[in-house]
Amino acid sequence: MSMVQSKRDRGLIGLRYVVLVVLAVFFLLPFYVIVRNAFSDNSTIVAARWQWIPEKFDFSVLQRLFADEQLGILKALGNSAVVSVLQTSLTVFVALLAGYALSRLDNVVGKILTSLTLFTLMVPAAVTFLPTFVMTAQFGWIDSIRGLVIPVMFSAFATYLFRQTFLNFPRELEEAAAIDGANPWTTFWRVVVPNSMGIIGAVGTITFIGSWNAFLWPLLISRSQTPTIQIVLSQFMTSQGVKYPELFAGALVAIVPVVLVFLFLQRFLVQGVETSGIK
């Protein structure tokens, strides 16, 4: 952004950097701790004196995790990837169409549908998901990719974000296309979507993160066939005790893919929110 900078501002710029660096250290600290603990043995983690750099590294934990066939971490990573990618694409597709429609339906139907969408954001899902689960079971979707994806792919949040974005989309472009005889479907794909990649990337990123990190839903749905990475990792924290190194090594395995995806997609996210904005 371009900002008018007064002399005083310029005088403060050094201070700003100091604050930024200090804050950055705090924000990165948890990542450091995960890495430190993942490569330490238990005695290092529970040592009375905090070791910023562990006196002895232990790389075997991570190796053991991947070597343990019972644990099936690779299979779980695969499942998580499939589920997240599927859920992300489907959610974005469905919400994109709906968000556009809601932004263009400026009659009473549009208002009602928008309110219906907004209202669901206010209803806490922690309790209503038990009926959802029972229905999913009724469909015979337990322990299947379908069961992991379909019931949770209709995101009111994503639809709402898209709608708010498209409210600001310049209609002249669409009208020009309509005059050329294009129907709304064609207009949507040829004109609207190509000009909205930013917000699509943004919603996609958020959906992917949510799906990858989901815990309660997969806990109920997945059994032996479709464990996700979050479920597999929950094994290290049982009532029998906590295995610190394994727990943190597992956490590392779980966050590396999503952080990579995130770093790759985040420019879309920033762009997307900037061009459209939530209003």
Binding site: L130, F133, V134, A137, Q138, G140, I142, L219, L220
Partner: peptide, 11 residues
């Protein structure tokens, strides 16, 4: 949790 949820269903 998993068991009690499953017992509500047909599966």
């Amino acid at each position: 949790k998993k068991l009690s949820a499953a017992l509500l269903t047909n599966d």
